[in-house]
Amino acid sequence: MTLRESPCGCRAGAPTNAPEGTSGDTVPRACTDRSHRSRAWAELLRLPALFSVPGDALAGAAATSVPPNSRTLLAIASSLCLYEAGMALNDWADRDVDAVERPHRPLPSGRIRPAAAFTAACALTGAGLALAAGAGRPAIAVAAPLAATVWAYDLGLKHTPAGPVAMGAARGLDLLLGAAATSGSTRPALPSAALLGTHTLAVTTVSRQEAQGGSPLPPLAALATTALLTRLVTRHSARVAGGSGQPIDPGVTGGRRLSIVPGRTRGRGQATVSGRTRGRGQATVSGPAGPPAVLHQGQESGALLTTVLGAAYAATTARPYFHATLNPSPPLTQRAVGSGIRATIPLQAALTARSRGTVTALLIAALAPLGARFAKKVSVT
């Protein structure tokens, strides 16, 4: 008997003297069914798109100048659950439309029952809210409207003019969830949430015509939006990298409040001032906060990383959006949408680097090649 490893890990076999016309190596039907079922759920949940989710919470945390903590991890887990709830609910709500436009999708093809998809959406929503509650009251205060926005989009707003706005709001709220869970405050993260939400709005607008094609205006507008967002994210960084960095604030350095006491330090996190000023509102800082040269060097490295990540964001979408503008056919439009989703990761990383989260930004950026690799196996659109 010849044995071999089946796709799901079972050892399958058949006699080597099997009848002519049959395979000497067979795979149990249960094994193939399990493999097909897993593939169907991966398509329904669009698993490669999950790589674009953790960066939301991490960018939100970076904007608050508070290092990521255990509550940040709970926010990430909550975001993943709510994101996948939206994916399952999306296909459940669109099952009749997909039966005409995308009969290969898991629900219209019969590989997953509609009731199972709806149950998964409910369970994932409940899990996401429970995880957010574990991160504290500020987190659940953001997660609840986020979940409501996801359900409202899938069940009613998707095919209305408010659809892209709702999707952009959901992505912005997801970033604020990370800020609320990490620090208890969302205010410092509002600018980053607005930039990320604008990007999502542009991608969603393009996606509305990915099944049948349409006008070149949405991808052209998305291309212009990408250029604007890249400029906004990297504008301050360009000034710092060019040698015109902001003066050191004698009251705040490295996200911590400092007490200025001439000639000595008063404790941890407080600075010593040499006694002479370099200009109105500027001071030479030394002590635990670090000398000015070190601080400026850190600013320059963070600015350079922000610029590089901003360029990566623009490069990810520029060509697909341009091609979809020239020819807004379904294949090119779908490619543009997929690129827009993947571009979310370098944008998150750029926003994090802009907030001085250099290490976290690099971790987020590392998710981009993983997402691109898995997107070759399962479509993100």
Rank of each mutant, 00 (worst) to 15 (best):
C8Q: 13
G9N: 08
G9L: 06
G21H: 10
G24H: 01
T26H: 04
A30E: 15
T32C: 08
S35N: 01
A40Q: 02
A40H: 06
A42T: 09
E43T: 12
G55R: 07
D56M: 05
A62E: 08
T64A: 04
P68S: 10
S70Q: 13
R71S: 09
L73Y: 01
I76G: 00
S78V: 10
Y83Q: 15
G86W: 07
M87Y: 03
A88P: 00
D91A: 06
D94M: 11
D96A: 11
H104A: 15
S109R: 01
A116P: 04
A117M: 11
A121P: 04
C122N: 11
T125C: 11
G128P: 00
A130C: 08
A132I: 09
R137M: 12
V142C: 05
V142L: 12
V142T: 05
A148K: 07
A148F: 05
W151G: 01
D154N: 15
G156M: 08
L157C: 12
K158D: 15
H159A: 14
T160A: 12
A162N: 08
M167Q: 08
R171Y: 11
L177S: 00
T182E: 03
G184E: 05
P188E: 00
P188W: 08
A189G: 11
L195V: 10
L195D: 02
L196C: 02
L196D: 01
G197W: 12
G197N: 07
T205F: 02
Q209L: 06
E210T: 10
A211H: 14
L217I: 13
P218N: 08
P219M: 08
P219S: 03
L220M: 12
L220K: 11
A221F: 02
A221P: 00
A224W: 05
T225N: 05
L228F: 07
L229D: 00
R231Q: 14
H236Q: 14
H236G: 07
H236K: 07
G243V: 14
G243N: 10
Q246N: 04
Q246G: 04
I248Y: 00
T253M: 12
G254M: 12
G255H: 06
G255I: 08
L258F: 03
A271Q: 04
T284V: 15
T284M: 07
G287W: 02
A289C: 14
G290D: 02
A293Y: 04
V294G: 05
V294S: 13
G298P: 05
G298N: 12
S301K: 13
A303Y: 10
L304T: 09
L304F: 03
L305T: 06
V308E: 10
Y313Q: 06
Y313R: 09
A314D: 02
A315V: 03
A315Q: 13
T316C: 02
P320D: 00
T325D: 03
N327L: 12
P328L: 07
P330C: 12
Q334E: 11
V337K: 09
A349S: 08
A350G: 05
L351S: 00
L351G: 00
R356Y: 14
A365T: 12
L367C: 13
P369E: 03
A372R: 14
R373W: 14
K377F: 11
V378N: 03
